[in-house]
């Protein structure tokens, strides 16, 4: 009897613990996303990836369709080479364009996909050549100041 009660409590404890682990995996981490088996990889070259990180989401029309799986540097062309794993349920044409966007003004960066009109679809290992780089805040401010300064030069020369 005593022994059974003890076993019961330990059983309850283990069940609770496993339920908690399952809850963490499924509800909190939402482990229903894509796994590597059903994804294909495409490459994209960017002049500047800004703050993009591995595992950042890849979205099309706001829907997450894949994740950044690798970031590398091309020493010949001096460009960033980003490998993107896309869920094989989603197909995109070969003239798809990719751009690095920011969620919110200062939020995390992700890759936005804009599909093209070509009838041929991207295959595993293809290169996406229509890309636009990350918007880097410092560069923007720099440009802004530069244009302001240009406006100002007229006044200084007039003096």
């Amino acid at each position: 009897m005593k022994r059974q009660l003890l076993d019961f409590w330990v059983g309850l404890f283990v069940a609770l613990g496993i339920a908690a682990l399952v809850f963490l995996s499924l509800r909190v981490a939402n482990l229903t996303g894509l796994d590597d088996g059903s994804a294909y990889s495409v490459l994209a070259e960017f002049d500047n990836i800004g703050g993009l990180k591995v595992r950042a989401p890849v979205k099309s029309a706001g829907v997450t369709v894949g994740r950044v799986s690798d970031i590398d540097y091309d020493t010949v062309q001096h460009k960033a080479v980003v490998t993107v794993a896309i869920d094989s349920r989603y197909q995109f044409s070969t003239d798809t364009s990719m751009s690095i966007l920011t969620s919110g003004l200062l939020g995390e960066q992700y890759i936005g996909i804009q599909t093209g009109s070509d009838s041929e679809m991207l295959q595993d290992g293809d290169l996406v050549w229509l890309t636009s780089s990350a918007m880097v805040l410092e560069n923007l401010i720099g440009e802004f100041l530069f244009s302001k300064a240009k406006e100002g030069t007229g006044d200084t020369e007039a003096q």
């Binding site: 496993i18 908690a20 909190v28």
Partner: peptide
């Protein structure tokens, strides 16, 4: 070794 990870998971869920 068996108990601590389970307790940690329970702690996390209750905390959330």
């Amino acid at each position: 070794i068996l108990s601590v990870p389970l307790l940690t998971a329970i702690f996390n869920v209750v905390g959330i």
